[in-house]
Design a protein around this nucleic acid. Sequence first.
DNA 1: CACTCCCGCCAATTA
DNA 2: TAATTGGCGGGAGTG
Length: 898
Amino acid sequence: ENIFDRSRMAPKTPIKNEPIDLSKQKGCTPERNPITPVKVIDRPQPDPWTPTANLKILVSAASPDMRDREKKKELFRPIENSEQSDTPDSLQYDIVDDSTVDEFEKQRPSRKQKSLGLLCQKFLARYPNYPLSTEKTTISLDEVASILGVERRRIYDIVNVLESLHLVSRVAKNQYCWHGRHNLSQTLKMLQEAGELQYGELMTSQHKEQDLEYKFGERKKETIPDSQGRPLPDFSEPDCSSASANSRKDKSLRIMSQKFVMLFLVSKTKIVTLDIAAKILIEETQDTVDHSKFKTKVRRLYDIANVLTSLGLIKKVHVTEERGRKPAFKWIGPVEFPEKTDELRRHSPTSDPLPGTQRGACVQYQSSAPGKQRFTHHTSFNSAQPCEATRRKVSSEPNSPHQEKQASIVNSDENSSKMINLAAVCRQKIEEDTGKKTCDTETILNSAKNSNTTFPLSLLPVPGDSDFCVNPLPQAVFPVVQADVPSFSLPVGISSQASQPSMSAASKTENGKPTLVPSQPFLCFPPSSLFMLCGGLQENNLSEPLPTAGELGNRNVEAQAAVPPPVCPKRSSHKCSSPSAPADDEEPAAKKQTLEHSFVPLSLVVPKKPSESPKAESSPGNGCSAAVHLETDHLDLASPAAPEVANKESTKPLYFEEQEKQSQNKHPDEPLPGNEPISKENANQPSQPQYLYVQPTAGLSSFNFLFSANQAPGAISLAANQLPSLSVPCVMVPSAALASFPLVCSPSFSSPLPPVPDGSFSAAASPSFSVSSLASSTPLFISTTAVVTPKVSPAPSVDPQQPAHPALHLSPVLTRSCSAVKLDSPMCMGHPVTLLKLQQPSSAPLTPKSIRPAHHEAFFKTPGSLGDPVAWKKNEGNQTRSASSVQRRLEISSTSPD
DNA sequence: CACTCCCGCCAATTA
DNA sequence: TAATTGGCGGGAGTG
């Protein structure tokens, strides 16, 4: 038989077989046996003890690994690719028979499946975005490579980029330490600073907010950088000491990655084309543009871009220029970082001892630097940061209050995790539905379009909740919005969390509960609790009432009473936090609002300020969208501040509309101008309508909204009335305050901690709430900024992010699980972010209010929500606190438009 | 054909 | 010297 087979097979098999073997075995094994008589003989022998037996054993031992890998690969496949492959193969198989089978199988894994981006996602999915300070996870390259089923070489590509952003650090040979995104904002900040030095004129010149001519066309800015091509040494500057560092290879991936990021951070438009980047990065070589070199550089940039994309920091777009469209990438990560993070950290109670391992790691990281070239470089950058982050956490722990918070958090964890999962699921679905396209390139020119599309990445199938959270995908949010209300709510919240780019982790740690949310947008309210949002908190408001701490405390208590400890469980918090994108947060908030709208029976929308804009007028009747417009309008109007803004503002409505039309597809980023203005407005505008959100006592999913436009007493009174009826504690949040919202949510925890210890948030927030409390007609202002920042001073106009509200939308359950607050700040400095969000949120809330059951459709569509998200995103960048934040925003906006 | 970027050779570094 | 890292560019996959 064998002989026959051979004769038959032989011709075919030899070639085929080999390949087959590699790939898989079905037919192969049988064939082979026949093929080599010798082998056959051998095989039998092994069984009896022979030398070969040992080999055999070894082989078998080894083989399992191989098998495992393949299995794992396959496992992944289904998730990612799934479908098609199987059937076709099988068919082919049958038909083709032995001859070609192997090829088919091999072919299956499409190139995409093997992409570095996907691989990176898998990689990131394995680690929490915001790992607890205590847990230090070490990464074994070999292990990961085998698990992911790729060669180690690929892992290096990923790790090198991650290392450049300090998401990981090399501890030892084959060992990396996972830091997560806690320090990401700092790292980005550093890079930005470094980038400004190097590439810098762009940024510096810009400051004006409005200046933007964000016409898409001009990218001069980029060109400018090109000219510069200066030598990198500067950037390396951070490393300073490590002399050796520069020398060898350090150049490449790591450095390249940092430079690449710098370009984004420095760029107004936040868009960098590959060729420009390549030219800039070639640096020294500038003169000789060596085509081949250029080509190689571009290849590397793709590698880096894939990883950054997986991190949710950039997305692919297309820039159309004179000649045509060029591939480019747009920065979608946090634009501004919290400047003062350090200060905040310092504030945090203690520094403390690090857990050995972690500390050790940190230490090594730093200390090692000198010795190791690489490290030195990196360390120089942010050397201390990681450690600091850990400290915070640690420090926080010691504090009794914190501990309490944590405990509460823990409880909530389950819920949060569930929510997260749900969100993840939703996202996935959405993504699937809407588009796998997500990653696809978008043309920048089509500003609107650009905004939403994006990442599927964040969605990672799932695995760990935390993972999801981790992935910040602002974009994801939009899709969510599209989704039906109910489903949305969860997803939204989740998305929001995920989205937030900035890491609030530190803040989280500081404030026990708040920490939960910090990064996240979510707020969890007790079902019964009422929420009052004051739409435009303006400086006026701030000036008026900053609530005293005591007041706040009172309020907080109430709020707390109403809400069970919303705090997210640690993990949840992490998760939430992990998705740091601020913009995202905003979006979610918007979504939430939309959801709320649908629910809200009670919601009253009172646009007190008659916005001049016709839309506002018309809107009342209309669904959410209308409401949104109104808000926006109001904002615009309100914002006294900038005439300039006014122009932009005018644009805003447009954005919203567009967004609505496009339905969430667009990314917030594009619309920056609009967003910015809004944010500005919010900040500036004192007048903005205040909103009240009232959850029905039953409160499950539904939230009720009450708006009082601005501070209108009437509105307030209403809220008060409702509250009593509800018997639920109310929270008033200035629109601006919204940003702080998350904090607001915290009220629940606040009760325990009226005085905010660490987190500026908690303190600020609590007060704000208290003030807002129904009792006084006066709305509270908690300046979001104030909230965020440790600084008590009320942030004047900071727009609160309403994202928190969105969280609220989540439904009581969710709310419980997490009181998410958006704190964008914590990590980033947090405060600033809130502002932008606030506006949007305000708008969002409005819509809901306006909306009535009938209007649900509007809700769904409500572009407002969409718009909001977008705006948020735009705003996101500006997380800075009030005034300064505003300015920043403006700046940012200007940049973004570009 | 252009864009992406996977793959893996092989040199530089490290242990 | 062996192993680990990682630069680099050919060339394949995709649209």
